[in-house]
């Protein structure tokens, strides 16, 4: 089944790019969204690996609930700010 190979290849590349984005994005809210998207991609792998129940849980809990948790915590931590291009002292606060 060549289409499975193609889907797996594309999704692995996308998930690894998403993981890199979660680690290297300056905006921490965007990094949290990238983490939720990685969870969503992993749930696709679970479907391909014949584990539909795990995929269901991962999509609902790993992507949905965990993303909500991260977003609310980011709001509490004051990370919901639009970063204008300036080199102020709080740029070091969001560095990797």
């Amino acid at each position: 089944m060549a289409w499975t190979d193609l889907i797996v290849l594309i999704m692995v590349v996308l998930v690894l790019i998403g993981a890199g984005a979660a680690l290297f994005l300056k905006n921490l809210l965007a990094a949290a969204v990238a983490t939720a998207l990685v969870s969503l991609g992993v749930s696709v792998f679970f479907v391909i690996l014949r584990a539909p129940d795990v995929a269901l849980t991962e999509a609902a809990v790993g992507a949905g609930l965990s993303g909500l948790l991260l977003a609310l915590a980011a709001k509490r931590l004051g990370l919901w700010r639009i970063e204008i291009q300036q080199d102020s002292e709080d740029a070091g606060d969001s560095s990797c």
């Binding site: 993981a19 979660a22 680690l23 921490l28 990094a31 949290a32 983490t35 990685v38 969870s39 965990s66 991260l70 915590a73 980011a74 931590l77 990370l79 606060d93 969001s94 560095s95 990797c96």
Partner: peptide, 14 residues
């Protein structure tokens, strides 16, 4: 390697 506490939580999730 990351210094930001929030990003450490993200890396743990990954």
């Amino acid at each position: 390697l990351s210094r930001n506490l929030f990003r450490i939580v993200l890396a743990l999730s990954l």
